[in-house]
């Protein structure tokens, strides 16, 4: 019997610590498959964030660093500049990247650092118990917004992909989602593109992936997947926002 679907080589056998139905696991698999398919594993170094994916180094068969909260782009900049032959990627949550690390990612993208960022947007701080993130939707109930996010008080959610796409420096910026089959397939395509641009030494690349946090949203995984489609996708449209070929 031939296997038509099996675990990618860049993923370890370790069972993850993620909650049941948390789509961090799906995103890990996609990154690992892309590393396998593009033959990048031996040159790859990941940079893990602070957040639920803090232990990502246990799950990938490649070198890994663990950065201080939000500082993964600074680590990645150092790695890539010291040894441009490495394939460097950061894997960051929305609390990590859009909040405490907002300045880091903005300037790394603006300098055109040639690494790849996987940005997991699940609209809350997962690890610390579901507090409001800069990406929390208007009206969304979290532990720090028990009556829903009030935009008059704390502003609107940040659309990171669109924000970074306004920069003049060439880059590849896309947003995808893993809440359904089409989204998972599209995410793989976008990630393959992102890593290919790095492999060809073209530009900075970032894929924002809409993800679920069933635990802190307080709903079962199936409902969480539906919630992404119903509430997140309308606010965070999917697609490519910037490609290095199209300079504006």
């Amino acid at each position: 019997m031939e296997l038509i679907f099996k675990k990618p080589e860049s993923l370890t056998d370790t069972i993850t610590h993620y909650c049941p139905g948390c789509t961090h696991g799906v995103i890990h698999r996609i990154v690992a498959e892309v590393l396998d398919e593009l033959g990048l594993r031996e040159r790859a170094v990941g940079v893990a964030p602070v957040g639920c994916s803090v232990l990502a180094y246990n799950y990938f068969y490649c070198d890994f660093l663990e950065a201080a909260h939000g500082r993964a782009p600074a680590f990645a900049t150092g790695l890539k500049r010291a040894n441009p032959n490495l394939i460097v990627f950061t894997y960051q949550g929305d609390g990590d990247l859009a909040s405490i690390g907002g300045n880091e990612i903005l300037h790394a993208a603006n300098r055109g650092e040639k690494f790849t960022t996987i940005f997991v947007n699940n609209a809350v701080y997962g690890m610390t118990g579901g507090q409001m993130a800069p990406t929390t939707l208007p009206g969304q109930v979290t532990t720090t917004t028990p009556f829903g996010r009030k935009v008059d008080d704390v502003g609107y959610p940040i659309r990171v992909a669109e924000l970074l796409a306004t920069l003049r420096t060439p880059s590849y910026i896309a947003r995808t989602s893993v809440h359904n089959s089409e989204g998972i397939i599209a995410t793989k395509k976008a990630m393959r593109k992102a890593f290919s641009y790095q492999k060809e030494n073209v530009c900075f690349s970032l894929v924002e992936v809409l993800s679920t946090c069933p635990t802190n949203w307080g709903i079962p995984p199936k409902q969480a997947a539906e919630w992404v489609g119903e509430h997140m996708v309308p606010y965070y449209p999917l697609g490519e926002f910037k490609t290095p070929e199209k300079v504006h």
Binding site: I4, F5, H24, I184, I185
Partner: peptide
């Protein structure tokens, strides 16, 4: 393979012992 692509925990492996139609490009 959609079940396997969706599983966050790599619990699903799929084998085949004849030609299987490919429904999409991954």
């Amino acid at each position: 393979t959609l079940c396997a692509l969706t599983c966050p925990d790599m619990a699903i492996t799929i084998g085949a012992n004849s030609v299987v139609y490919r429904f999409f490009e991954v």
